[in-house]
Lab assay of single mutants.
Amino acid sequence: MEVRTIKVFTTVDNINLHTQVVDMSMTYGQQFGPTYLDGADVTKIKPHNSHEGKTFYVLPNDDTLRVEAFEYYHTTDPSFLGRYMSALNHTKKWKYPQVNGLTSIKWADNNCYLATALLTLQQIELKFNPPALQDAYYRARAGEAANFCALILAYCNKTVGELGDVRETMSYLFQHANLDSCKRVLNVVCKTCGQQQTTLKGVEAVMYMGTLSYEQFKKGVQIPCTCGKQATKYLVQQESPFVMMSAPPAQYELKHGTFTCASEYTGNYQCGHYKHITSKETLYCIDGALLTKSSEYKGPITDVFYKENSYTTTIK
C-alpha cells in the first residue's frame, strides 16, 4: 500500500517557510505537534488534498525554529505562539472599519479597549522592536488589523473576551517599542525636605499616572512627601515624541487643539466601556464603527496623549 502524501510549508514567522512532505494517514499533531492554519487549530486533523502548498504555523520545537521565533517575536515564552494563534482565530472574524481616516474595530468580545489602543497607536510616533509587531502594525494602518490585535493580546497575556485596560495595554506595548531616546527629568520640591531631581528613561519617561493635564504637570502637581507634608512635583525636561497622561476616570474637559487623542471610560472596574476622542479640525468621538463630532467635550476621561518633541522648564 502506497503512502499518500502532500507537500506543505511549516513556519513560526510566515517569513521562513520549511518544506514538509506530510503523510495523509496521520494527523498534523502526530507529525508536527500543535499546528495552526489561519489561526485555526488543526492539530487533530489529517492532511487533505486542499492543504497542498498551504502554510501551517507550528510551535518552535527545534533550534532553527526557536531562533526564527525569537528573532521575529522577541520572546522565548513557549506558550506565546499558541496564544497568538488562538487569538487570531477570533480577531480574523472582527470587522476593521476605516473611521475618520483611522483603522478602528467594530465592537465584539469586549474589544473596546483594543480599538482605543489601536486608534491611539496610529496617532503617536512609535516604532516597535519585534519585527512581528512592526509588520502587523503597518498592515493594521492599511486596514488589516487582525494579526496586530492578536499579537497585542498575546504580548499582554490576554484572551479574547476578557476586559482590558488601555493604560495597561499601552504599557505592555511600550515595553516592546523603541523608547531608548526618551528621557524625563522631574523635580520634587518640599518646604521641609528641599528639592530632589529624578531622571527617568524609556517607558517611565512617557507615562504618568495622577493627572490628565500635561500643562498642569509642567506647572506642578501636589504629591505627598515622605515627611508627610505636601510637596510639588513638576516637569523639568521632556525628550520624547509623545507623552501619555493618565488618571482614574473623572469628568474632564478636553479643549480642541490642546491634545492629540484621549480615552474615555464609562462604567466601573468590573464592567465598563471605552471610547476614543481625537482632536482634528474639530473633536471626534470614535466608538467602534461609530463616529460623532463636537466642538467641545466633557466626560469621564482616563488617558490623554500629547505630541511632544523637546521641553525644558522655565521655572527657576
Results as ranks from 00 to 15, higher is better:
Gly164Phe: 03
Leu114Pro: 02
Asp23Tyr: 10
Pro249Leu: 03
Cys225Gly: 03
Ser246Asp: 08
Ala150Lys: 01
Asp109Glu: 13
Asp180Ser: 14
Ala117Met: 12
Asp38Pro: 04
Val8Tyr: 00
Lys183Asp: 05
Lys218His: 06
Glu52Lys: 10
Tyr274Leu: 01
Thr312Pro: 09
Glu125Trp: 01
Val58Pro: 01
Ser25Arg: 12
Asp63Trp: 07
Thr76Gly: 10
Asn309Glu: 09
Tyr172Ser: 14
Cys285Arg: 07
Tyr113Met: 04
Lys316Val: 13
Val67Asp: 15
Gln175Cys: 06
Tyr137Gln: 07
Thr11Pro: 01
Thr232Val: 13
Gln230Ser: 12
Asn268Ile: 09
Glu308Ser: 08
Asn61Cys: 14
Ile277Val: 09
Gly220Ser: 05
Val166Arg: 02
Tyr274Lys: 03
Leu163Met: 15
Ile301Met: 04
Asn14Val: 05
Leu119Asn: 04
Pro34Phe: 05
Thr260Val: 15
Lys219Asp: 11
Thr192Asp: 14
Lys46Cys: 09
Thr266Pro: 06
Thr314Lys: 15
Ile45Ser: 10
Tyr306Ile: 05
Gln98Cys: 13
Lys183Cys: 08
Thr27Arg: 08
Lys44Thr: 13
Thr226Ile: 12
Lys218Val: 07
Ile6Asn: 02
Leu235Asn: 07
Gln270Asn: 12
Asp63Thr: 14
Tyr252Glu: 10
Asp38Cys: 11
Ser86Val: 13
Thr27Ser: 10
Tyr306Val: 06
Val99Glu: 15
His176Thr: 03
Gly257Met: 06
Cys149Ala: 06
Asn147Ala: 12
Leu283Thr: 07
Gly101Trp: 03
Phe259His: 03
Thr211Asp: 10
Asp109Asn: 07
Ala140Phe: 07
Tyr214Arg: 05
Arg83Thr: 03
Thr302Ile: 05
Gln123Pro: 01
Leu121Asn: 02
Gly202Arg: 03
Val166Asp: 03
Asn61Gly: 13
Ser310Lys: 08
Val42Pro: 00
Leu235Asp: 03
Thr302Val: 10
Cys285Pro: 05
Gly143His: 02
Leu81Met: 13
Lys93Glu: 06
Arg83His: 10
His48Ser: 11
Ile45Pro: 02
Gln195Ile: 13
Ile152Phe: 02
Gln238Val: 02
Pro300Phe: 12
Ala250Thr: 13
Arg4Asp: 08
Asn309Pro: 05
Leu121Met: 12
Gly210His: 03
Val243Gly: 06
Phe259Trp: 02
Val12Met: 11
Gly101Ala: 02
Phe56Asp: 00
Lys275Tyr: 02
Ile105Leu: 03
Leu121Ile: 15
Leu65Trp: 08
Pro249Asp: 06
Tyr269Phe: 13
Met244His: 13
Thr103Asn: 00
Cys225Ser: 03
Leu133Ser: 01
Phe305Ala: 07
Leu291Ile: 15
Thr282Pro: 06
Lys7Ala: 06
Gly82His: 13
Thr116Val: 07
Ser25Ala: 14
Val206Glu: 04
Asp23Thr: 10
Phe217Ser: 05
Ala117Thr: 14
Gly272Trp: 10
Glu168Met: 04
Asn14Pro: 07
Phe174Gln: 01
Ser86Met: 14
Tyr311Val: 10
Glu204Val: 06
Asp180Phe: 09
Leu173Cys: 06
Val12Cys: 10
Thr312Val: 14
Gln123Cys: 04
Glu308Ile: 14
Gln31Asn: 14
Lys280Trp: 09
Phe174Tyr: 06
Leu163Trp: 14
Ala289Cys: 15
Leu126Gly: 02
Ala142Ile: 10
Leu290Gln: 15
Leu179Arg: 04
Leu291Asn: 09
Leu173Ser: 00
Phe305Arg: 08
His273Thr: 06
Cys193Lys: 03
Phe80Arg: 00
Thr27Tyr: 15
Leu118Cys: 02
Gln237Cys: 12
Tyr155Trp: 00
Tyr113Ile: 02
Asp38Arg: 11
Ala205Thr: 06
Phe9Thr: 06
Leu119Tyr: 03
Thr10Trp: 06
Tyr265Pro: 08
Lys92Glu: 02
Met170Asp: 00
Thr10His: 14
Cys182Asp: 01
Gly202Ser: 05
Ser25Tyr: 11
Cys190Arg: 03
Lys95Trp: 09
Met209Glu: 13
His276Ala: 05
Met85Lys: 12
Tyr57Arg: 03
Leu133Gln: 01
Phe259Tyr: 06
Leu133Tyr: 01
Glu308Asp: 09
Ser171Arg: 13
Lys127His: 14
Gln195Glu: 15
Gly39Asp: 07
Ser79Phe: 15
Phe9Ile: 11
Arg141Leu: 13
Met245Cys: 08
Ser295Ile: 15
His48Tyr: 14
Leu114Trp: 01
Ser25Gln: 06
Ile152Leu: 07
Cys112Val: 02
Met207Leu: 03
Gln222His: 07
Ile15Thr: 10
Asn14Ser: 12
Ile286Ala: 06
Gln31His: 05
Thr211Lys: 06
Glu2Thr: 11
Lys106Gly: 13
Gln222Asn: 15
Ser279Glu: 08
Thr260Tyr: 09
His176Pro: 01
Thr312Glu: 11
Gln31Lys: 10
Cys149His: 01
Gln251Trp: 12
Thr64Phe: 10
Thr91Pro: 01
Asp180Asn: 00
Val160Gln: 00
Leu121Lys: 02
Met85Gln: 07
Cys156Thr: 09
Gln196Val: 12
Asn157Asp: 13
Thr35Ser: 07
Thr312Leu: 12
Asn157Met: 07
Phe56Tyr: 02
Lys218Gly: 02
Tyr297Ala: 03
Ile152Trp: 02
Ile124Arg: 04
Thr302Ala: 08
Ala146Tyr: 03
Val21Gly: 07
Phe242Trp: 11
Lys106Ala: 15
His176Val: 03
Ile277Asn: 07
Leu179Asn: 03
Lys93Tyr: 15
Phe217Ile: 13
Met209Asn: 09
Ser104Val: 02
Thr43Leu: 03
Thr282Gln: 11
Arg4Thr: 14
Gly299Pro: 06
Met244Pro: 07
Gly164Trp: 04
Leu114Met: 05
Gln238Glu: 04
Lys93Trp: 04
Ala262Cys: 02
Val185Lys: 08
Gln270Cys: 11
Val243Phe: 05
Leu88Lys: 05
Asn309Met: 12
Arg4Met: 14
Val58Ala: 07
Glu71Thr: 10
Leu133Thr: 01
Lys127Thr: 10
His276Met: 04
Ile124Val: 08
Pro130Ile: 12
Met245Ser: 05
Tyr96Gln: 01
Thr312Met: 11
Gly267Arg: 15
Glu68Ala: 06
Leu81Asp: 00
Asn147Pro: 15
Leu173Tyr: 00
Phe70Cys: 11
Asp13Cys: 00
Tyr137Asn: 02
Thr266Ser: 12
Ser25Pro: 02
Pro224Cys: 09
Gly220Lys: 04
Leu81Cys: 06
Val185Trp: 03
Thr91Gly: 00
Glu239Pro: 05
Ala262Asn: 00
Thr27Phe: 08
Lys233Ile: 15
Gln230Arg: 10
Tyr172Val: 10
Lys183Pro: 02
Pro47Tyr: 02
Trp94Arg: 00
Glu239Lys: 13
Thr64Cys: 09
Ala262Glu: 03
Tyr155Gln: 05
Thr91Cys: 09
Ile315Trp: 09
Met170Leu: 11
Phe56Arg: 00
Ala40Cys: 10
Met85Arg: 10
Thr159Tyr: 07
Gln251Phe: 07
Lys54His: 10
Thr226Ala: 14
Ala40Gly: 14
Asn178Leu: 09
Gln196Glu: 14
Ile124Gln: 00
Arg4Gly: 12
Arg184Met: 11
Gly164Cys: 07
Gln98Arg: 13
Phe174Pro: 00
Glu239Ser: 13
Val67Met: 14
Lys233Asp: 04
Lys92Gly: 05
Leu102Gln: 08
Phe259Gly: 06
Thr278Tyr: 13
Ser246Asn: 06
Lys316Ile: 10
Gln197Asn: 09
Ser310Arg: 12
Val12Glu: 09
Ala150Met: 00
Val3Pro: 10
Met245Asp: 07
Glu125Gln: 15
Gly53Ala: 12
Lys280Val: 07
Leu200Met: 09
Ile105Glu: 03
Pro248Thr: 09
Pro47Lys: 00
Val185His: 03
Glu215Asn: 09
Lys275Gly: 03
Thr258His: 15
Thr5Met: 07
Ala250Ile: 15
Cys182Ser: 08
Phe128Asn: 01
Lys191Pro: 13
Phe217Ala: 08
Thr91Val: 07
Leu151Glu: 00
Gln122Phe: 02
Asp287Leu: 00
Asn110Ala: 05
Gly228Cys: 03
Arg83Tyr: 00
Thr260Phe: 05
His256Leu: 12
Ile124Phe: 09
Glu281Phe: 02
Glu296Val: 13
Lys298Ser: 11
Lys7Tyr: 12
Gly161His: 07
Lys316Gly: 12
Met207His: 07
Ser86Ala: 13
His90Cys: 14
Pro224Trp: 10
Val67Asn: 12
Gln20Val: 10
Tyr113Cys: 03
Thr192Cys: 14
Asn129Pro: 02
Ser171Tyr: 14
Gly101Phe: 00
Asn61Val: 10
Met170Tyr: 03
Glu144Asn: 14
